[in-house]
Amino acid sequence: MNDYTKPLPTLNDHNRPFWEAARKDELRLQQCLDCQHIRYPINHVCPKCLSERAEWKRVSGRGTVFSYIVFHQVYHAGFAKDVPYNVAMIQLEEGPRMISNVVGVPVDAVKVGDAVTVCFDRVTEDVAIPRFKLATQANA
């Protein structure tokens, strides 16, 4: 795991609960304590009501592919061995959209509307990155 060459998140007080949950194979997002809006990306203010009060809620990790693109160009040396790879916008059942990858299938197998479920890629001792698998592949 020490040879991971791709960019890593910078853990801080605002995002640490997200990354700690991911290390436990859980997807947790912020939920506003005033309007109940579930939000992502992580922010100190609710985009619906501007409240600063929130808690971390475990979400299902289920969603659909809202959009995707296949990268054929190497934009960072750490991704050179992965080209081509997909970058997908996942519409989570709970509302937010996440940018990630659909893994475990050829890049041309991903389609808009595909049902997906979260999985976690442990890239270092401290970081597990949420990725998604096609729902039909989730139990494989």
Rank of each mutant, 00 (worst) to 15 (best):
L134P: 01
N139P: 10
K111L: 09
Y4D: 08
G95T: 13
T64A: 05
A109W: 10
H37L: 08
E55T: 14
F71R: 12
I129C: 06
P9R: 02
V103L: 04
G113I: 05
Y68C: 08
G63N: 04
N15M: 06
E93K: 09
L29K: 02
I38M: 01
V127F: 09
Y4A: 08
A88S: 11
L50I: 07
L92V: 13
V105M: 04
G78I: 06
D108F: 06
R122M: 09
Q31L: 00
R16C: 03
V74S: 10
R62G: 07
F18A: 01
G78C: 09
I69Q: 14
R58I: 07
P96L: 12
T64D: 01
C46I: 02
K111D: 14
S67G: 12
A138P: 04
V118K: 02
N2W: 06
S51Y: 01
R58G: 05
D25Q: 15
G113F: 03
V103S: 02
A135L: 05
K81C: 07
P47H: 12
S51K: 03
D3E: 15
Y75D: 03
Y4V: 09
Q31H: 02
K6Q: 10
Q30N: 03
Y4E: 08
A128F: 01
P130K: 04
P106I: 13
K133Q: 10
V70H: 07
H76I: 08
